[in-house]
């Protein structure tokens, strides 16, 4: 009985301590959730931010769909989505959004004989692969684009996202623009009815499946390809040139949109004109609730403002392009205008 009593007391003590500590820590932690696209950036920023200010920004990369759902439900302080919400949807739900940084998605593939960057694809070919019309790697359509390569007689295993994803939105938005059949059959959203393929959870899941399954192809945010030393395919953009996914390519796409005048920063970066523009460029928007406690929103704004001011080198190191200074200024006045207060 004595040992049981001791156990019980120890347990009660642990729980009491656990309950007491929150009072101390509650002020300096934030929860955000959403896009896996922007996760490498937010994770890098928050690790440094925590060392500098003590505030913990806990970001769960559960997919843009999750970010939108959770901020609507008010269960997180900010939601991150690669699909910008339309201004009328923002109004209806009492939300505001602002962009973070630009980046791009690329097609990652697993073909043992073909080094990274050697494979060239176009939008229509990718659409046909994802529609299930092109089934093998040595299909004439792919061979035409890659005359110098020996493509194997292997089935293409298509990998897509199984969760609600802004990367999916960016990818399917691009496919809808260049393939009328895709636009009609599947459409564009954070979660679509994929005609074929295997679903990975998060960009991490897709990158992981592509790593494991020979003959597979998947779309992932470029930072994941960098981190995992995966193989990416080059593409032919709207200007007809063969381009690689580069920071410059993403920023060129960004230069062609009018950030400052877009209502609620609603812009789409896919298939932009320009000689070196990367076709599947995108951005992540941070979504806040208007009627969240002022202290919470202020903490979120402080964090991202710090990122804009001091986090650009970190961003560039993982191929995230900073927003132009005019856009950052526009964001700050947007905060003031929409919330009534700002940092």
């Amino acid at each position: 009985m004595k040992s049981l009593k001791k156990m019980g007391m120890a347990l009660a003590l642990t729980v009491a301590c656990a309950l007491a500590i929150p009072a101390v820590r509650a002020q300096s932690s934030l929860t955000g959730a959403g896009s896996t696209w922007v996760y490498p950036l937010v994770a890098k920023w928050s690790a440094t931010y925590q060392k500098l200010t003590g505030t913990e920004v806990n970001y769960q990369s559960i997919g843009s769909g999750g970010g939108i759902a959770q901020i609507k439900a008010g269960t997180v302080a900010f939601g991150a989505s690669d699909m910008p919400l339309k201004p009328e949807d923002l109004r209806a739900a009492g939300l505001i959004q602002f962009p973070t940084a630009v980046a791009g998605a690329a097609m990652s593939y697993n073909l043992s004989g073909i080094a990274s960057g050697k494979l060239i694809l176009t939008g229509p070919v990718i659409a046909d692969i994802y529609l299930g019309k092109i089934k093998k790697w040595n299909d004439p359509a792919i061979e035409k684009l890659n005359p110098g390569l020996k493509l194997p007689d292997m089935n293409i295993t298509v990998v897509h996202r199984s969760d609600g994803s802004g990367t999916t939105f960016t990818f399917t938005n691009y496919l809808s623009k260049i393939s009328p059949e895709w636009k009609e059959k599947v459409g564009s959203n954070t979660s679509v009815a994929w005609p074929v393929g295997v679903g990975g959870k998060g960009s991490e899941g897709v990158a992981s499946y592509v790593q494991r399954i020979p003959g597979s192809i998947g779309y992932v945010e470029y930072a994941y390809i960098l981190e995992t030393h995966g193989s990416y395919a080059r593409m032919i953009n709207s200007a007809g040139k063969v381009v690689s996914p580069t920071l410059q390519g993403f920023q060129d796409a960004s230069a062609h949109v009018d950030w400052a005048n877009a209502q609620d920063f609603y812009v789409i970066l896919t298939n932009q004109p320009g000689a070196d523009t990367w076709p599947i460029s995108g951005c992540t928007w941070q979504i806040l609730r208007k009627n969240a406690p002022q202290a919470t929103n202020m903490q979120v704004m402080k964090f991202f403002d710090w990122g804009f001011e001091h986090g650009q080198e970190m961003a560039k190191s993982i191929a995230f392009g900073p927003l132009p200074p005019s856009t950052v200024a526009a964001i700050k006045s947007y905060w003031k205008r929409e919330l009534g207060y700002s940092i």
């Binding site: 559960i62 997919g63 769909g65 999750g66 939108i68 759902a69 199984s162 969760d163 609600g164």
Partner: peptide, 15 residues
């Protein structure tokens, strides 16, 4: 997909 697997994958993201 099974019912439990689709719940695990899509629940937190239902918009």
């Amino acid at each position: 997909a099974t019912i439990p697997s689709v719940l695990a994958n899509e629940f937190t993201e239902a918009t």
